[in-house]
Design a protein around this nucleic acid. Structure first.
Lengths: 342, 342
DNA sequence: CTGTTAGCGCATTCAT
DNA sequence: ATGAATGCGCTAACAG
């Protein structure tokens, strides 16, 4: 495939009448090498005329770094991931780094992702999906190979990589206690799909807190009101509408996502049910929208608005440190934010 | 910075007692080279024991391709971009390609993006942001340098790259005609921020259609009801709430985004206004949510649900073609979908 | 069937 | 102040 040949530093050197070394020095604007303005201009001019751009692969090979970071997420279109992506992009931009995104939503893709990281597609990575596709040994393996890594997980133990936690259990427990404590008896759980499928084998933190609370309050579990649908707004709306249309409709709904909870509020209102009088709603996460719904949405979530600048900072710190620091762990526990919907 | 040295093909070759060439052939599973199972296993075993992974930069340099594609978007968290990203990721996955995302929301970042593409950070790119940061000459420049390119734009002319269009004007005109035709007189325009700022210099297609319709129906433009806020749900809600609280409140709202329109419906309902009787709402785009609001949301948008698989297909076709085909243009004009909110 | 070798394009010594 | 030479790690001709 005869793609038009890109100009190389040789071409520039030839056109400028200097050596490739000089071209390299000029292009990298190195100050430790005194280069007369005249030569510099000759080079820059030649580069411009050829519209020369140094080849990234060659540079990476030589410099032994790619100047890219990798962001591994579980899916596209999740508000929290979006914020993470924004914060990583911002930090990467400052550092002159690019961001390559990998979506891991199956074991196969997880293996592919690990392989790519092993191949040093990036100088460091943030691993966000907290579903089981990436095992702890995958992570330690990567870290041992010298890749700077920041992992967002409530279960992983730092081992050559940093861990950022957001423990949910206490906040969820508080939310459920509040619901049961104020007399709710049929609390439905609107779950993510993967969460639903693994409900009995590896229950998520939220789901485990739910089961715990049921026991604590002597309420018998009814699998009929544990429904998947939190992944997207439309499905959530439909599932909740169905739940609320039943004769034995729930008197409260805990949604595993903020989007799900907001859909639940609409569904309730559209069904002429009062929130929270007829049905209470709690959502997990920290959507700004929580404050503009009627009533405002009670949530379990981080203490402040989503902010992953710290994650980005840790990553770039590790990258520039060069020498793998001890694994650190930072933790920002969730809390229960009671608002209008409970 | 003494990062642990990664094993190279030499190390594997040494351990397996073969040459680097054999290692390369085995690792790439090439069938044109008949390799006895025994040697193959020796190599694979050695590779596994060293946890060897071929270095990506070296391979890219040698093969003259990165096996990455670049997705350039205008921001993060826009539903249509999300769908685009999903479709590109899916196609890339099949082809064993990675996806690197670049966010271009300023001229500076646009220049950075062009530079990176010039440096052959990827084997091809999809350019999505239809705001002016990337000029047509930027694009032709890139294309001329041999980079396979698919551009989503209603204005760019294909010139070494493919163009995917989604003309909006007719659909918007139809929507406005419907509004004015059914007696609306104060039609507010909830715009994106950049759209608002460039309203008089480079009005967006939607805004231009709005101005046109005003003239056509003999309605005088009132800048007081052209407000930014379509970018996010919360701002949209607040702006619309403000609009509706005014004594001279609008009797219709055209939102430049689906999210904005949905917030508008809430805001209206929360203000005890009937949609569409007191205020009609139209949104631009194709959110699935349009069907679950009460009333359902009238929209201008693509004929079917967002689907960018065609964009992905064009890109990979161009990449594997090798030889730059004539620029093609495909077009999927928007239409007006009247539903409950008008 | 397998090894030797010559680059890919660049950054960096070491000479000059 | 500049150039020649070396090699980053890999793949693909070409030999054997």
């Amino acid at each position: 495939m005869p793609r038009r040949k890109q100009p190389t530093s040789h071409d520039v050197a030839a056109l400028a009448g200097v050596s490739v070394a000089t071209v390299s020095y000029v292009m990298n604007g190195r100050t430790d090498r005194r280069i007369p303005v005249e030569t510099r201009d000759k080079v820059l001019d030649a580069a411009r005329r050829l519209s020369y751009a140094p080849n990234r692969s060659a540079r990476s090979l030589r410099r032994r770094r790619t100047e890219q970071v990798c962001l591994v997420v579980g899916s596209i279109g999740v508000p929290a991931y979006d914020q993470l992506a924004r914060d990583i992009h911002a930090r990467a931009d400052e550092a002159g780094y690019g961001v390559v995104t990998i979506v891991v939503d199956s074991r196969a893709r997880a293996e592919k992702a690990i392989d790519l990281l092993q191949q040093r597609i990036a100088d460091g990575a943030v691993i966000a999906p907290d579903v089981g596709y990436l095992t702890e040994s995958d992570l330690t393996g990567l870290a041992r190979s010298g890749l700077p890594l920041v992992v967002m997980s409530n279960t992983a133990t730092p081992d050559g990589f940093d861990v950022v936690r957001a423990p949910e259990t206490a906040a969820c427990a508080a939310a459920f206690d509040h619901l049961f404590g104020t007399g709710r008896r049929r609390v439905a759980f609107l779950s993510h799909l993967h969460e639903f499928e693994a409900a009995d084998t590896h229950p998520s933190e939220r789901l485990a807190a739910y089961f715990d609370a049921l026991e604590r309050h002597g309420v018998v579990r009814d699998d009929g009101i544990i429904v998947p649908g939190a992944n997207d707004r439309v499905t959530a709306y439909q599932r909740v509408a169905e739940l609320l249309a039943r004769p034995d409709r729930p008197d409260a709904i805990f949604a595993a996502s903020g989007r799900g909870a907001i859909s639940a509020i609409w569904a309730a209102r559209d069904a002429q049910l009062a929130v929270p009088d007829d049905v209470a709603v709690v959502g997990a996460g920290n959507l700004p929208e929580s404050l503009i719904t009627r009533p405002t949405l009670s949530t379990v979530g981080p203490s402040a608005a989503d902010d992953f600048t710290e994650v980005a900072r840790l990553l770039f710190e590790r990258i520039s440190a060069g020498v793998p620091a001890e694994g650190r762990v930072i933790s920002d526990p969730w809390s229960f934010h009671p608002r209008g919907s409970t």
